[in-house]
């Protein structure tokens, strides 16, 4: 029994729910963990802005309340990313992915800049819409195979997963933050608070990397 990410080295079962580690998922999990620890122990930078047409510059300050809220959302995002990396259940994967989308909006929505808030709002709409194909994909997985377990899919004994289910899952994940929706996220990426903003791009990339493994399972 081997997935495209390698042979599972450890499987932890909670009844129907299970968590498993392959060389691929453990790599992604460790990266999510490393950046979450960085979020916990780092203080945000003070972004320097240059005044247009002159030599003047100023450093932006982040208030303590804003920093606390964004740090909380970034840690939640890190935990959701870690969950999405190691879960062995398609439905749990979609739940964690949706949570990543919500926390990404939360990380930047607290920034007191109209441009950043506009971007967060637009991204929120995209992420909200993307949850429809995301959960529908999981539903089609369950309807077609009778199981949502990735370990069962890995065994190759279940009926084949319809291409439409895989496509919906990928579209859902793409809507949660991957290209071409980066256009909406560009404003978010230049918001101050580097450790938190990085968690947005990291979580989006991680769930995309995981969904590649998930769709290649069945």
């Amino acid at each position: 029994m081997a997935s495209i990410g390698g042979i599972p080295s450890y499987i932890l079962e909670f009844g129907d729910e299970l968590v498993y580690f392959t060389p691929y998922t453990i790599t992604l999990f460790l990266l999510a963990l490393t950046f979450t620890v960085l979020v916990i122990i780092s203080r945000p930078e003070r972004q320097v802005d240059i005044a247009f047409g002159g030599d003047a510059y100023r450093a932006k300050e982040i208030s303590l309340s804003e920093m606390r809220f964004r740090r909380f959302m970034a840690i939640a995002c890190g935990l959701a990313s870690m969950g999405a990396m190691v879960t062995g259940d398609i439905f749990n994967f979609t739940l964690f992915t949706a949570m990543v989308g919500i926390t990404n909006v939360g990380i930047v929505a607290a920034v007191k800049s109209p441009h950043v808030q506009d971007a967060a709002y637009q991204y929120g709409l995209v992420a909200l819409s993307a949850t429809v194909p995301l959960f529908a994909g999981a539903a089609v997985y369950a309807a077609a195979t009778g199981s949502l377990s990735m370990i069962e899919l890995m065994k190759g004994t279940l009926p084949a997963v319809p291409l439409i289910a895989k496509a919906m899952l990928v579209i859902g994940v793409v809507g949660e933050g991957m290209a071409p929706f980066y256009a909406a996220k560009a404003e978010m990426f230049r918001a101050p608070g580097a450790p938190y903003v990085i968690m947005c791009s990291l979580s989006s990339l991680l769930i995309f990397l995981r969904v590649v493994e998930v769709v290649l399972l069945g």
């Binding site: 780092s42 203080r43 945000p44 972004q47 450790p195």
Partner: peptide, 11 residues
């Protein structure tokens, strides 16, 4: 740099 997020800058 003084304005940097020191842990992230090094990490």
């Amino acid at each position: 740099p003084l304005t940097a997020s020191r842990t992230l800058f090094v990490g």
